[in-house]
Amino acid sequence: MNSLHLSGTSPVHRLSPEAKVVAVLLFTVVVVLTPREEFAAFAGYAVLLAVVAAVARVPAGWLLKRTTIELPFVLLAVLLPFFGHGARVDWLGLSLSVEGLYGAWNIFAKGTLGVLASLLLAATTTARDLIHGLDRLRCPTVITQIMTFMLRYVDVLIDDARRMRIARLSRGYDPRFLWQVKAFAVGVGALFLRSYERGERVYLAMLSRGYAGRLPSPAAGPAAAREWAFSSALPVAAAGIAVAAAVLA
């Protein structure tokens, strides 16, 4: 299950997941550390992501459609110029806070770049490969194990919830108001208990088959040096843009 993944054979798709995770993380760090006044630097970061999207053959429309996940933060950013303090400027009859405008730009620019980088990572890497990549990066085992089980059983839980909803509807109960949600609350509790019991049974079955706290790892080895070099192009280029913008400022 990975609705964000786009199957492909591009050079970005073929990179080892741990190399892509580190590249995106370092790129995001550079973006976050960039002063909000460096408008040219943010434009350069956007160009870098556009190049990665082109190499990975990820359609621009696909990316733009999924950036709507940041809409709540964009709405917050839109309010900042109106309620900010300090010096103000007039624009189209509106009195806007200069500090608020900078704050809104900071949220929008860095948030959008971070979302786009994450979407490119998800589009070129399956959820299972991401977990294996985190495991190779020495992410705590308990976290990767929980993520693995979540990935494996989330479809089962969704199917259980769907069947329980159908059962409620078949009995004529279709709550539409707050005071009618008793059946829904009872269903959530039953789903939790059923999931807990299933987890216990699965765990006991795994112990009987020799589980010792770690699932088998895939046969593929860690990322090669050339993969690290290729993936480092994004954060290194971003760092170069940041340094150039700081020098020319």
Rank of each mutant, 00 (worst) to 15 (best):
A60K: 05
H85I: 11
G103Q: 00
F83W: 13
Y45V: 09
L75F: 09
I241F: 12
L94K: 06
Y211F: 06
A117T: 05
L191C: 03
V74W: 02
S232N: 14
I69W: 08
L96M: 01
S170D: 13
R14Y: 01
A185W: 13
G199A: 08
F39H: 03
V22S: 08
L137C: 01
R128P: 13
S95C: 03
S7P: 09
R201V: 02
A246C: 02
L92G: 09
A104Y: 15
A109Y: 02
S95Y: 00
L157N: 00
H13M: 04
V154G: 07
V78I: 07
V154I: 15
V247D: 04
A212F: 09
G86R: 04
K20I: 06
P175R: 03
V32M: 11
V89Q: 02
L80P: 10
D174Y: 01
G240D: 11
V74M: 08
M164H: 14
A60T: 13
V154W: 06
W91N: 00
P218T: 02
P59E: 00
A161K: 12
M164S: 15
R214M: 08
L79T: 01
G187F: 09
P218K: 00
A40P: 04
A19L: 02
P140S: 04
I241V: 14
V24K: 11
I241S: 04
V29I: 15
A229P: 08
P175C: 03
V156G: 01
R66P: 05
F184L: 14
L121Y: 10
G114L: 07
L48Q: 02
F177Q: 11
R165G: 07
E200Q: 10
F73S: 00
D135I: 02
T148C: 12
D135P: 06
E227W: 06
D159M: 06
A41K: 05
S95E: 07
D160H: 14
T144H: 05
D129F: 11
L119V: 08
R152I: 03
A104H: 14
M147Q: 04
A77I: 04
V236N: 09
C139Q: 00
R36G: 04
G240L: 14
R171G: 12
R163E: 13
A245I: 12
L49M: 04
M147R: 12
L121R: 03
R14H: 06
R128L: 10
L25H: 12
T125G: 02
M1D: 10
R226E: 11
M1E: 05
E99G: 14
S195A: 13
G93T: 04
P235T: 08
L121Q: 03
W228C: 15
M1T: 10
A233Y: 00
I146K: 09
V202F: 03
A53P: 11
A190S: 09
D155Q: 05
G44E: 02
V186N: 13
D129P: 06
A46Y: 04
G103H: 09
I166C: 08
L137K: 05
V156S: 06
R201H: 10
L49H: 00
V115G: 03
V156N: 05
L26W: 14
A244F: 14
I107E: 00
N2L: 07
A229D: 15
F184A: 01
A239H: 01
I69C: 08
P140N: 01
V78P: 01
V52D: 03
F177V: 13
L92H: 01
A43P: 03
S3E: 14
D159L: 05
A117C: 07
R36N: 06
S170G: 15
F149K: 05
R171S: 14
G221V: 10
I107F: 11
A205S: 12
